[in-house]
Simulated assay, not measured.
Amino acid sequence: MAMLNYSFDLPSDFMGYEWEVTAKGCFSGARITVGGKQYRLNFYDAARLGQEIESELESGNVFFEPNLVIVRSVTKEEMERAVEDLVRFGLVVSLAPE
């Protein structure tokens, strides 16, 4: 299967606060552009995702997060690897464009 052309974009100053994002365990400021469509991705690590789900359920709400991507740790390297997998395995078709 041919690799689709795509771009993965983080805020230009991301490296300055990556440690904070990693500690927080979530980040929604990343975007991927594939085939002329742009998608905002919501990255979580498993621990933070569990906290978010529990918090929403305890509040009587449902948990819903479009374009949810779970990574081992919310770092630039892990997010880039996840995006590469989304493209390589054709999972981009399941994302909701902006």
Rank of each mutant, 00 (worst) to 15 (best):
S59E: 12
F27C: 01
T33E: 09
M15S: 15
K37R: 12
I32Q: 02
S28L: 04
L49D: 03
S28W: 04
G50N: 13
G29E: 07
Q38I: 15
K24H: 13
S28R: 05
Y44W: 12
R48F: 00
F8S: 09
E58W: 02
T33F: 05
D9I: 15
S55Y: 08
R31W: 05
R48A: 02
R48T: 07
V21Q: 05
R31A: 10
W19H: 07
Y17L: 07
L10Y: 06
A30E: 01
S28C: 11
P11A: 06
A47T: 13
S59R: 14
G25A: 05
G60I: 08
G25C: 02
C26K: 03
M15A: 15
V21L: 00
R40A: 08
E20R: 02
E56H: 09
Y44P: 01
N42H: 15
E56Y: 06
D9K: 15
Y17H: 13
F14A: 06
E52C: 04
P11E: 04
A23K: 15
L57C: 09
G25Y: 03
D13T: 11
E56V: 01
K24N: 13
V21K: 03
G60E: 10
G16A: 10
Q51F: 01
P11V: 05
E20W: 00
M15D: 15
S28I: 04
D9P: 07
T22A: 13
V21P: 00
G36Q: 06
S7D: 12
F27Q: 00
V21N: 06
T22V: 10
A46G: 08
G16K: 12
E18F: 04
Q51Y: 04
M15N: 14
L57M: 14
T22I: 08
F43G: 01
E52G: 04
S12V: 12
E52N: 04
Q38D: 11
Q51S: 06
G36H: 06
G35K: 10
F27W: 02
S59W: 08
A47M: 11
F14Q: 03
N42C: 14
R40E: 07
Y39R: 02
F8N: 07
C26Y: 01
S55R: 10
C26F: 01
V62C: 12
S12W: 06
V62F: 13
F8D: 05
D9W: 14
A47S: 13
M15I: 13
F8P: 00
V62N: 13
E58F: 05
Y44T: 02
Q51L: 08
L49P: 03
L57S: 09
W19E: 01
G35E: 12
Y17A: 08
Y17G: 06
D45K: 05
G16W: 09
G16F: 11
A46I: 10
I32C: 00
K37G: 00
D9Q: 15
L10F: 15
F8A: 11
F14D: 04
E18Y: 05
W19P: 03
I53V: 15
T33H: 05
K24L: 12
V21M: 00
M15V: 12
F14I: 09
A47Q: 14
